[in-house]
Computed example of a mutant assay.
Amino acid sequence: MEGREFEFKGMVVNGFLMIFIILLLTVLFVLSFFMKEELGVSAYVIGIVGIVFTFFLWPGIIQLEPNEARAMVFFGTYKGTFRRTGLFWINPFMTAKKLSLRARNLNVDPIKVNDKVGNPILIGLVLVWKLKDTYKALFEIDSQTMASKPNEVGTSLAGRMKAFEDFVRVQSDAALRQVAGLYAYDNNEGGEEELTLRNGGDEVNEQLVQKLNERLAMAGMEVIEARINYLAYAPEIAAVMLRRQQASAIISAREKIVEGAVSMVKMALDRLDSDDIVELDEEKKAAMVSNLLVVLCADEPAQPVINSGTLNH
């Protein structure tokens, strides 16, 4: 089982029972001081040694809440992970490193990366992670050097979990750069088939979760969910890309306007011809088409001009 997490198999006593026993022993050893006549000087020896002995028993009391665990280490040897919820007593010479198995949020600040086509972009993510393997988390990575206060890592749950969070943050940065490099920010060529960071949605997020879990597996951590929560062009190209997007939007709008205008002109010519309202030769049809397209495609309302002559002049 070396190198893997397993359940603690050592001696475990109910915590409430052990507290009662320790208190009872303490009372008996204190009473021994008053038995000098029966025991002589040995009464003091028994009392002092017994009280010191009870002091060594108290550190064996541990308490675990739901989704908490204790990695049991006996003079440097891993003896298993204790997960039972409640109050218990174990060997007081056993070091019980407390760990939280609860899900934790991590909001990764936006970083600057290059997308698939080389455009600099800003991208950030939010993820939910938790410990999966306590052995790997404690002994496969050097959490001591990652903590903001290294001296507190060995005894502080908060310091230990902060060190794990720093590890997740660094690996998240690397995974985010890797995934961002696989896709373009947007499909500026107008095609709809290519997957991009903007339209990828769940597929891009699933790819991000996969890359994160590959990197965090060595540390016994698991990413439950990861989502891109910030996406923008880098400031140095944001203005240029905005103008490009505006130009694309204008072109798309013009295409719709021209398509509608041509349809309306065709309908007008067909109605004039079918209802025998007026008979136009090719030259006048061309002039009419030109005028209608100008009116229909113009950005501003056209100024009407009344022709007081006849169509024959």
Results as ranks from 00 to 15, higher is better:
R177T: 07
L197F: 00
F53D: 00
L195H: 00
S252H: 08
G50L: 06
Y233G: 01
R271T: 12
G154N: 15
L99A: 11
D281H: 03
S308W: 02
G80Y: 04
S248W: 01
A174F: 10
K149S: 13
F34W: 09
D270Q: 13
F33A: 03
W89N: 08
V49Y: 12
I48H: 06
E38I: 09
G159D: 13
T196K: 03
K97M: 11
V117E: 11
F6Q: 09
G220T: 07
M221S: 01
I123G: 00
L31W: 05
N67G: 00
L99I: 12
R177P: 00
L131R: 09
R83Y: 12
G200D: 02
R177L: 06
V278Q: 07
V265Q: 07
I51E: 01
G181A: 11
L208Q: 04
N213T: 08
E140W: 07
Q171K: 15
I141V: 15
W89K: 04
P301L: 04
N307I: 06
V13Q: 07
R160Y: 15
V117M: 05
A239F: 04
R254A: 04
Y185N: 03
E192D: 13
P92F: 01
A69C: 07
T26Q: 12
N307Y: 12
G260F: 09
I237W: 04
N114A: 09
P235G: 01
Q245C: 07
G60Y: 02
V168N: 09
V13R: 08
Q171W: 06
T54F: 05
V73D: 13
E222H: 13
N205W: 06
G191W: 06
